[in-house]
Write a protein that binds this DNA or RNA. Structure first.
Lengths: 312, 312
DNA sequence: TATAGCTGTTGCCGAAACGGCATCAATATG
DNA sequence: CATATTGATGCCGTTTCGGCAACAGCTATA
């Protein structure tokens, strides 16, 4: 089912690989064929699409416009294929997800498990990245659904939903803070702290608050893995911070306690956004999963914010 | 700039004309070429796209799916072309509008005039139709922007805005009702009435209300042209009904008076919707005009509802 | 009922497009 | 300086495409 000009697919491959010869290898054709299609394309558009560097090719402005069009075409072709397949019975769909680490603990595995229970022919591809990488992967068409911290997102993405979760401290059960209901940042900084590295968005949530305090924090551990930070906290090595998305596991794991942060009387929110490419209609099975995802995250938001209703 | 498979364009032409030979004439190619491309397409999709009637071709279910994809591709190609052209200076855009008659009196001409004053290289194509025809034309990709009565719209259309205008009676200045501020339907039906035919949406707005009254209306004139109905009213031939969108002209035209309808104490609203195809990104110049249209209609809604603030 | 006019399809053939191979100049890397 | 890799190009066989003419099927009209 390849009724689109080879030029379209070749261009797409060259854009992704950044090189004509690499694209040719990917497509199992001679590099000359790819080169000629690109040249022909540039002639028809009337403007160069790539800048030829010695190391490969980079998109020009016009090239980026065409890349946008080509991506729209290929993604919509995907949707069409999926529609036809679901009609004819022979059917198998894939949902590709890019998300940040916070989701891996329970939200995503639970959702995928329950979804595959009902729709067994849907397979999943998930990739865990930082928030900005999630959005970039989505822009480049490398994922269908993106879940990331709700930063400013590029205009080619659409924010399907925005859910806010409490940011809190995670400490071992024996930690002096563990008996409190909530904690302030100042209280936490009196103890060793397990900091997030700048590549985690928790860093960007906490940094401005810490800077405001103008105190010298204790020497601390820094890490870029939420899971690792949690394990470190469990071993009593300090206070970690994370969004309250793992309430199930936390309550199962009796070693850890979650304490919502209290910042001058108000909670500290961590906004989680669900994104898709704006110029795109999702295949039916992807759309269906997306709605489950939104519903489930909304459910968790409700449940967890009810569990810790108010800052003291 | 034709970097898409000929099959795509051929398919599109066949779908529009409903015939292979007609499509071939449209495309200036032999009918055999078109036939073969369609057959090839069907082979690649693995399912027939058209039902061959003796008189021509009709889309199958799969064919309609492909038609949707092809339309998305071609419309997005249009946008890409427009983007490139606006970058390279050589530029000319067209905005294609399908709308109902209510707009022709002042809203649309005023807007087009002011828009062309600023963006002289944008040309316009407007087609006046009934509300359902407007939506269908939009679905078929024959227009960029549709303005129609806000009925239930097909799911492939997106309602960009919804504006409500008062429905009212239009009478000659010398008409006995002319001195009133508002009128009820019962009061109107005491006089000869100029009815809208079912093809005008005013008919569908008024018919349920008239049916409720269970009175025998006076023998009346029926027409399917808002302009004609207004002219008939101006000649004292009866009471016409229309949405209050021509306030400028009405106030200039001293022969006519507009009287908002009062239905059991509440106004009678006529909902006007602005529509675009959902699975589409508009070219920049079209999007720009669309926003002006929404703004202007909102402005009129505000102004005209302020002019006749409340039912007595 | 016969005819004329339409429909889409198919065989044949020339023209255009496509892809593979070998090669070239330019550039980066060791 | 030598080597490797990049994209571009000339040559050539294969594939695809499009035009012409003919065919079968259907409809409307006389």
């Amino acid at each position: 089912m390849r009724f689109h000009s080879p030029a379209i697919q070749y261009f797409h491959a060259v854009r992704r690989t950044g090189s004509i010869r690499a694209a040719a290898r990917l497509l199992n054709v001679a590099s000359s064929a790819v080169s000629r299609q690109i040249l022909k394309l540039e002639q028809e558009v009337g403007s160069p699409l790539f800048e030829r560097n010695a190391r490969g090719l980079t998109l020009t402005t016009v090239g980026e416009m065409l890349a946008r069009h080509v991506m729209n075409v290929l993604q919509d072709l995907d949707r069409f294929r999926s529609d036809v397949a679901s009609l004819s019975g022979t059917w198998h769909g894939t949902v590709s997800i890019a998300c940040i680490e916070s989701l891996t603990e329970s939200v995503l595995p639970d959702l995928i498990a329950s979804h595959r229970g009902r729709a067994r022919r849907v397979s999943f591809t998930t990739e865990v990245k930082g928030s900005t990488d999630v959005l970039e992967a989505l822009s480049r068409g490398e994922a269908d659904i993106g879940i990331a911290m709700a930063l400013r997102h590029p205009p080619d993405l659409r924010q399907v939903a925005l859910k806010r979760f409490r940011l809190g401290a995670v400490v071992a059960r024996e930690h002096p803070l563990a008996r409190r209901k909530t904690v302030t940042l100042t209280q936490c900084l009196a103890f060793p702290v397990i900091h997030a590295l700048p590549e985690l968005s928790i860093y960007h949530l906490l940094q401005p608050l810490i800077a405001q305090l103008s105190e010298t924090p204790e020497p601390a551990i820094q890490a870029n893995s939420i899971d690792l930070m949690r394990e470190l906290a469990a071993r009593g090595l300090g206070v970690a911070f994370q969004t309250q998305l793992g309430i199930d596991r936390l309550s199962r794991d009796s070693r850890l306690v979650f304490l919502p942060l209290d910042n001058a009387g108000s909670p500290v929110w961590s906004d989680l956004g669900i994104y898709v490419r704006a110029e795109r209609t999702l295949p039916a099975h992807t759309e269906s999963f997306l709605q489950e995802l939104v519903r489930e995250l909304g459910e968790r938001e409700r449940r967890e914010n009810a569990a810790y209703p108010q800052v003291a």
